[in-house]
Amino acid sequence: MREFCLITGRTIKQGITLHDGKTTEVYRNEVGIVYLNGEDMEELGIIEGSSVLLKTDYGQVVVRAVKGDLPKGMAFMPYGPWANMLTSANTHGTGMPDLKGIKLYIYPACEEVWDWKRVLEEVKSVEG
């Protein structure tokens, strides 16, 4: 299985739709999203705008895949609840969790992009 490197960060659309509200559809459309390198998408057989299941050692989430200007092997997600399903809470004694540079696996999915309620259900479902 191919390993990707997940980078999280800000986008303008994330900043704009934040003010519409975090439970809104427009916010989900802009933040429940992963940007991938075009060649990688072809290799994985992922169609622009389709759902993908993302998995890391720390969790999973279903988001929309979109082509972005990225190096091969890199995936980019805007900061938000979707990205944080995949990040690690281990701060290595610094207070700062691992929020960038996380090993990621990508699978085509037929499920719809999760909404915030589904995200929170997933959060609760995992044993701690």
């Binding site: 720390y58 990040t87 995992v126």
Partner: peptide, 16 residues
């Protein structure tokens, strides 16, 4: 602030 949206999953689970 919105830690439920901004924290890693494991931290959010315990927060909830």
């Amino acid at each position: 602030s919105d830690p439920v949206a901004n924290f890693p999953r494991e931290a959010v689970r315990n927060l909830l």
